[in-house]
Simulated scan of single mutants.
Amino acid sequence: MTPHEDIDWSTPEVAAHYDELPLWSAPFGLMLLDRVPLRRGQVVVDVGAGTGFVTVELAQRCGPESHVTAVDPWAAAMERLADKVAFLGLANVDLVVTPAERLPLADASVDLVVSNLGINNLDDPAAVLRECARVLRAGGVLVTTTNLVGHMEQVYAAYRGVLSELGLEAHRPALDAQEQHRATVESVSAQLAEAGLEVVDVATDTFRMRFADGRALLAHWFVRLGFVAGWRSVVPEPEGDRVLDLVADRLDAVAAEQGALELTVPMACVSAVRR
């Protein structure tokens, strides 16, 4: 078969499914796909699958003999994934809309569990990891990615400067808590060990997100979705919006000096085995 001979690029369906990955999750997902074991016939669970970037890739990269179960309580995202699965004709994918604390799978029935920025964003990661360990066979592997403490440190530095300038240091603990609740390699490794999984590989890296200035950052759709509400909550109204405006001013100044606003995001990919 020649490449793309069965794909009609003029159809609206092809365009509709040629969507770009969110820039936030893509670097983590590529890191995971570089390290995850790939074998035909393996049973895979994608925890916190979302709209299914990793699910779809593993279902294809492991071949049709494999089976991938995507798990996520976010029903709207799973509907989007169902549409992709149907369009791609992936008969080896199941979708389960449920919290990962209750995986509808038998003990020791899974070869591989993956989670791209999933487990670290759940309410009870310890319970989820226990479930992952329960369903993994002996020798089964869990591969998870997470952002680390220190992400977007440039924003937090500007925010601390504003709090100091306005005499609002009383709100500093709330800001620090937001920054520090991110994972560390040590905290992820400890959670995995507590769940009965042995860490066998840790990879770390950093990627950059560049913006014209601070206001472009705060107006970006994904930043608004994932971060702005939390940053705004540090200082209650009526001062909260003013504080965020001043943070934007400081970030604008950084961008003017450097030519662009560059944010750094440290990340990790951790692999563990069920012994």
Results as ranks from 00 to 15, higher is better:
residue 95 L to I: 15
residue 85 V to Y: 02
residue 97 V to A: 10
residue 108 A to Q: 14
residue 109 S to R: 03
residue 116 N to F: 02
residue 100 A to Q: 01
residue 119 I to L: 04
residue 111 D to Y: 05
residue 90 L to I: 01
residue 107 D to W: 02
residue 95 L to K: 06
residue 93 V to G: 03
residue 116 N to I: 06
residue 106 A to G: 11
residue 120 N to L: 12
residue 80 R to T: 13
residue 117 L to C: 10
residue 121 N to T: 12
residue 107 D to L: 01
residue 95 L to M: 09
residue 84 K to H: 14
residue 118 G to A: 05
residue 100 A to E: 01
residue 115 S to A: 07
residue 87 F to L: 14
residue 116 N to W: 06
residue 92 N to E: 01
residue 83 D to C: 06
residue 101 E to L: 04
residue 86 A to P: 00
residue 90 L to P: 02
residue 80 R to D: 02
residue 112 L to Q: 10
residue 84 K to S: 15
residue 121 N to S: 08
residue 89 G to K: 11
residue 95 L to Y: 02
residue 90 L to H: 12
residue 96 V to K: 07
residue 97 V to W: 00
residue 83 D to V: 04
residue 99 P to A: 13
residue 96 V to R: 08
residue 96 V to H: 10
residue 110 V to K: 09
residue 110 V to L: 13
residue 80 R to V: 06
residue 92 N to W: 03
residue 117 L to E: 02
residue 118 G to I: 02
residue 82 A to T: 04
residue 106 A to L: 09
residue 94 D to F: 04
residue 110 V to Q: 11
residue 100 A to K: 12
residue 103 L to K: 07
residue 101 E to M: 02
residue 101 E to Y: 02
residue 98 T to M: 04
residue 120 N to A: 11
residue 97 V to R: 09
residue 86 A to Q: 12
residue 82 A to N: 08
residue 112 L to D: 01
residue 98 T to Y: 00
residue 80 R to Q: 14
residue 85 V to Q: 10
residue 82 A to F: 00
residue 119 I to G: 00
residue 113 V to Y: 07
residue 120 N to V: 07
residue 86 A to S: 11
residue 106 A to C: 03
residue 121 N to F: 13
residue 115 S to F: 04
residue 97 V to D: 03
residue 104 P to L: 03
residue 121 N to C: 02
residue 102 R to E: 09
residue 101 E to C: 13
residue 119 I to V: 15
residue 89 G to C: 14
residue 84 K to Q: 09
residue 119 I to C: 08
residue 117 L to S: 12
residue 119 I to R: 06
residue 85 V to E: 00
residue 90 L to T: 14
residue 102 R to K: 15
residue 95 L to H: 01
residue 92 N to V: 09
residue 82 A to D: 06
residue 85 V to G: 08
residue 110 V to A: 09
residue 108 A to N: 14
residue 85 V to D: 01
residue 109 S to L: 10
residue 86 A to N: 01
residue 102 R to P: 00
residue 91 A to Y: 04
residue 113 V to S: 05
residue 93 V to R: 08
residue 113 V to N: 06
residue 107 D to E: 11
residue 104 P to F: 11
residue 114 V to Q: 07
residue 121 N to M: 04
residue 100 A to G: 09
residue 87 F to T: 07
residue 97 V to I: 11
